[in-house]
Structures are given as C-alpha cells and as structure tokens.
Computed example of a mutant assay.
Amino acid sequence: MDAIGAISNESQTCLNLLAQDGSQDCPLEKSYGHLEMLIDINQQLLNVIGVNHTAIENVCRITAKYGFHSKLTGAGGGGCVLTLLRNDTSATVLANLRADLEHAGYESWETVVGSYGVLYHTKDADTNTESSN
C-alpha cells in the first residue's frame, strides 16, 4: 500500500508537468514515459494484492497492442480501466483501439484529466482543504 501511495504522489508530479506542457528539466516525452511506467507498476501491484480480474487484464492486453498503458481504477464492483492516451495519438489508432475493445465486448469513454468524470485533487496548504484542478 505504501508503494501504491508513492506511485500516486509521483503521478501527481508528472501530471503537473504535463499540465505545464513539460519543462526544461522534464520534457513532455520524459513526463509521459515516466507516467506510463508508473501506470504499469501500479497495475502490477494491484494484481499482486488480488484486486485484478481477467477482464481487466484482457483490456490491458488490448490497449498494450497499440502501445498504451492501462490500469484498474475505481472503487471496485464494476471494473473500470484507465488508459493513458498521449496528445499525439492519431484518430486512426484510437478508432482501431475502440473497435478492438468493442469487438471484445467492452465500452470506452474518452475524457481529459480535470473534466467531468476525472478529477485531479491537490491539497491547498493555506486552507488545508482539497480543490479540484
């Protein structure tokens, strides 16, 4: 659980850099690559603690065919997978991925971090409250 918490904290750093379109110290490619690695490690840890399912693994295999990185997300009971899409993902690749997922019996939704359905929370140090970015 400590490792999963550390991954969450490190992911926050990567998301901050991506929101700023990278920086001189950490360009976009490095930020995406690091976040993809964290997603893979987190999915492996979730599998080790026994909260995975064959359907989740199947979705991860399908998205991996296209070079994407995916992980189980949500509070359980329904089974939902988060897949990171880079900004330069072509519409053709995305259409092919969606077709493969639908053919396997899965639905897909596209969103952006911070939009309805996906929120990114940060701790406001001055007021000690959470705010959505």
Rank of each mutant, 00 (worst) to 15 (best):
M1F: 03
I7E: 02
N9H: 12
T13E: 12
C14S: 11
C14H: 05
N16I: 12
A19Y: 08
A19H: 13
A19T: 05
Q20F: 04
S23V: 02
Q24G: 15
C26D: 09
P27Y: 09
E29H: 00
K30Q: 13
S31P: 05
M37D: 14
I39E: 08
Q43L: 06
Q43E: 14
Q44W: 00
L45G: 03
L46G: 05
V48H: 00
G50N: 01
I56N: 04
I56L: 15
E57I: 02
C60K: 15
K65I: 04
G67P: 11
G77D: 08
G78H: 00
C80L: 05
T83I: 03
L84D: 06
L84H: 07
L85K: 00
R86T: 07
T89K: 02
V93Q: 12
L94T: 07
L101H: 11
H103D: 14
A104E: 03
G105V: 12
Y106Q: 04
V112S: 07
V113D: 06
S115H: 10
G117F: 08
V118P: 10
V118Y: 04
Y120I: 08
H121I: 12
T122I: 10
D124C: 09
A125F: 09
A125H: 13
D126R: 02
T127E: 00
T129F: 00
E130Q: 11
E130C: 08
N133L: 07
